[in-house]
Design a protein around this nucleic acid. Structure first.
Lengths: 189, 189
DNA sequence: TTTGCGCATTGATCTAGATCAAGACTTTAC
DNA sequence: GTAAAGTCTTGATCTAGATCAATGCGCAAA
């Protein structure tokens, strides 16, 4: 399990750093069932998660109690509530397992230590930030500029794994449409 | 004009770094009129801009030719099309001056040089990335989970400067609603 | 000072997508 | 294996917000 993180890091840096063992030693393995929550809105997020296997859903709850999914994270991706984690303040988001998952997690304290002491770790964090920011910018633009049908097409083209692995209901909550509309629009593809 | 960037950097780092002059020397001052474009979709974005005075609008065009504004940037903020800039690839976004503005810009080559050679510059860049990412995450969540009226209230509370400085039309394009709806909802506040 | 263009407002109408409801199907739990 | 719960689909209806159209109002250019 930790092996998959080792490879991820080596791949990101283009080589395996000499202090990789020090980095890996701060991570803890956990296994979850579908539906398990890793974070509830209002709680402080103490961890960054690395998905070894499975899928995590990050969402908020609207005033009618509907889930709006900001993002899904699958194998080889990093997940946290970035603001709440950095400031160790209550989160506005939920993190839930959309599939039974195998995860590695690193605690805030370890994260701080590694960021300061291991330049390679800081470098990876910067890379993750850039990719995450870039993705989120696209997310805003597709939400604003595309209608429901084009958002479905966008997802099929850009995130085919998400499209095929998850339930229509979850995908609808990611696309900002109701499950019924999802059904009807899929017929038009 | 460059003085404002000097202060911004000193403030971000908590002190004025000894090599500040080297950093500042890579920036070029430009002044713009309202409506000037700094980037057109399809072009490669060669610069990162620092807003000394004024306001920049970053937007995309939907298939009906409507502008969807991803973000407005005012004094003391950094602007670029992050993905296109980093990869020096054609942009999907436009950057336009929403007000006559005074800007400092740094070219991609200089940016690369400073990132590699000046740790303080890299540190500031990481800070900007974190803040930008955090803001964009909130943007996705407000777009998805709030209705039009609540998005207006959110903007008034969290970005009062934007709300009071810019035209209703521009604000509507940021909130993802039509100018007519904007007029009608403002009456309900 | 005039001309004209972009913006704001208001009213009338339209529509994409939501909501409500009901039946069939598929997982999950014991 | 059966009960219970969640999911998918289809139909009927509703609604938030878009679009179209007309008017008045700044404000910028000549």
């Amino acid at each position: 399990m930790i092996e998959s993180l080792r490879q991820h890091i080596a791949h990101r840096l283009g080589r395996e750093p000499e202090n990789i063992q020090q980095v890996l030693s701060h991570f803890e393995e956990i296994a979850t069932k579908r539906g398990d929550h890793l974070l509830q809105a209002g709680d402080v997020c103490h961890y960054v998660y690395f998905v070894v296997e499975g899928c995590l859903q990050v969402y908020v709850m609207d005033k009618n109690g509907n889930e709006s999914t900001r993002e899904f994270y699958i194998e080889d991706q990093w997940v946290t509530d970035i603001f709440g984690f950095q400031h160790q303040s209550p989160s506005t988001e939920f993190i839930k397992c959309a599939e039974p998952s195998k995860l590695l997690r690193i605690h805030f304290n370890s994260f701080q230590t590694l960021s300061q002491q291991v330049p390679q770790f800081a470098a990876i964090y910067k890379q993750i930030l850039e990719v995450s920011y870039t993705n989120t910018v696209y997310r805003v633009n597709t939400l604003m500029a595309l209608d429901a049908l084009d958002r479905i097409k966008w997802l099929m083209e850009h995130k085919p794994k998400i499209m095929s692995r998850l339930s229509s209901k979850l995908i609808a909550s990611y696309l900002g449409i109701s499950p019924e509309t999802m059904t009807r629009l899929k017929a038009k593809l």
